[in-house]
């Protein structure tokens, strides 16, 4: 057992780094793209700032088509596009692309839901002051929904962490892959347990941080 861990420990640290890399890149790129997509969904809704039946309809259907695809299938479906964009369909880097795309679609709904909760009167007040739509999006919509958005992104962080566990299917690394390859496939349950504990610790830290930031943003 001790001998095993001398070899496994560096692997675990490496996997931990890969997971952080996958999750942070996906959250940054996918999270930003999802923010834009979610705002677009919200403002083009009926009765909203830039009401547009066609744009809303197309985006809405697109999001509804992509989101139900099981992620493990989505990764392989997106293979040809991944090849064009990343240059390979194998490895951690190749996995980050579909992860980011799915993150974007998932984020869009969470952003949209949080924006729907904003009091339309506040938007009307800003319009009455002569603010442009772009100004209203950046200085009213996002700041007013900041606290729920922070909690939404915390939720997303955990969902992305979850999705990243299957990176191994296209030769990617990360904690999920580590647990499967060095734990499950070698009947080494200790490895599985340790990996799960590491993941739980990451989730706890993320949730605590998210809650704390959201509370600060609420001005209560």
């Amino acid at each position: 057992m001790n001998g095993d861990w001398e070899l496994l420990w560096p692997k675990l640290v490496e996997s931990f780094g890969q997971t952080l890399q996958m999750v942070s890149v996906a959250l940054l790129t996918g999270g930003l793209a999802g923010l834009a997509l979610g705002i677009a969904l919200y403002v083009t809704r009926r009765g909203n700032l830039l009401e547009n039946r066609w744009v809303f309809g197309v985006l809405n259907v697109l999001v509804n088509i992509v989101r139900p695809i099981p992620f493990i299938i989505f990764v392989t479906l997106l293979g040809p596009v991944t090849l064009q964009v990343v240059g390979t369909t194998l490895g951690t880097e190749a996995f980050i692309f579909p992860l980011s795309v799915m993150t974007a679609f998932g984020t869009s709904r969470i952003v949209e839901q949080n924006l729907v909760g904003i009091d339309p009167g506040v938007v009307e007040a800003a319009r009455a002051m002569g603010a442009s739509s772009w100004r209203i999006i950046t200085t009213v919509l996002v700041p007013e929904a900041l606290a729920p958005l922070i909690l939404g992104y915390t939720f997303l962080f955990i969902a992305v962490l979850d999705m990243s566990a299957i990176a191994g299917i296209i030769g990617g690394g990360g904690l999920g892959n580590f647990a499967i390859v060095y734990g499950y496939q070698r009947y080494n349950w200790g490895v599985v347990v340790v990996t799960v504990l590491v993941i739980i610790a990451i989730v706890q830290v993320a949730q605590l941080l998210g809650n704390w930031l959201a509370r600060k943003a609420l001005h209560r």
């Binding site: 009167g121 506040v122 700041p143």
Partner: peptide, 14 residues
């Protein structure tokens, strides 16, 4: 033109 509202419509984040 200034406007005042029934529900005040203040920005809660400011």
């Amino acid at each position: 033109i200034g406007m005042v509202f029934q529900q005040f419509n203040l920005l809660s984040s400011r």
